[in-house]
């Protein structure tokens, strides 16, 4: 129903129409279609909607990988499976455990050749609940659009991990920009590295939320 084309001079009629629209929408329990995000990202991004695409964007060293891993933890915390496509085999396994991922429901595909990347992501979208995929450089827009459609059809959350040199060429439901921050704890020659609190900007549609992740 194109509500925007109605004459805006009659607010009462418009309000009645909105109410009828609300009553006749098919009712799907929102609870069944979302995954709760655990950990420090929760105040900014409380839930992942199944079938959506959440792009985690950040340069190397900003904390983007850890943020993406906490999205994978959302799936394993609910008893489901998560998988990661790691293009150059550099993912640290222990960091997954520290981000809250249950390692017995977590799989990593290491050193996938770039020409097989789209096939590999498509295969994983069929089987697990959250797929975190590093975007290769020069990823094709056609492949990316097909993967978005497949994720929506299967109800899997796709989390592409992009960066300034490898952007995600298709649409996304939510974009999480991780901007990094200072590292506390280390001084010149003394101290130990403590957990950092990176600045994160979550953009979903027109809403934008900026915050600092608690350590």
């Amino acid at each position: 129903m194109a509500l925007a084309t109605l004459p805006s001079r009659d607010p009462a009629a418009r309000a009645r129409l909105v109410e009828v629209h609300g009553r006749t929408r098919p009712l799907v329990l929102a609870r069944a279609r979302t995954l709760t995000v655990p950990g420090p990202l929760r105040p900014l991004l409380p839930e992942l909607v199944r079938g959506s695409v959440v792009v985690v964007d950040g340069a190397a060293g900003t904390g983007a990988t850890t943020a993406a891993l906490s999205l994978c933890a959302a799936a394993t915390a609910a008893g489901e499976w998560a998988a990661v496509i790691d293009l150059d085999g550099t993912l640290g396994g222990e960091a997954g455990a520290a981000a809250g991922v249950a390692l017995e429901r977590f799989a990593v595909a290491r050193r996938v050749p770039p020409d097989r990347w789209a096939t590999a992501v498509a295969v994983l979208l069929d089987g697990v609940s959250v797929v975190m995929a590093e975007v290769p450089r020069h990823a094709r827009a056609g492949d990316a659009h097909r993967l978005v459609a497949r994720a929506r059809e299967r109800g899997t959350v796709l989390v592409p991990l992009a960066g300034p040199r490898n952007p995600w060429p298709a649409t996304a439901t939510t974009r999480v920009h991780v901007e990094g921050g200072p590292w506390p704890g280390l001084d010149t020659g003394s101290g130990l590295l403590a957990d950092r609190t990176p600045t994160v900007r979550v953009v979903a549609g027109t809403r934008e939320r900026v915050g600092v992740l608690a350590g």
Partner: peptide, 16 residues
């Protein structure tokens, strides 16, 4: 869920 994931991962092994 485990069976579905297992099938997908075995297929991925065939690909990668």
């Amino acid at each position: 869920a485990g069976d579905r994931a297992d099938r997908a991962l075995v297929r991925l092994q065939a690909v990668a």
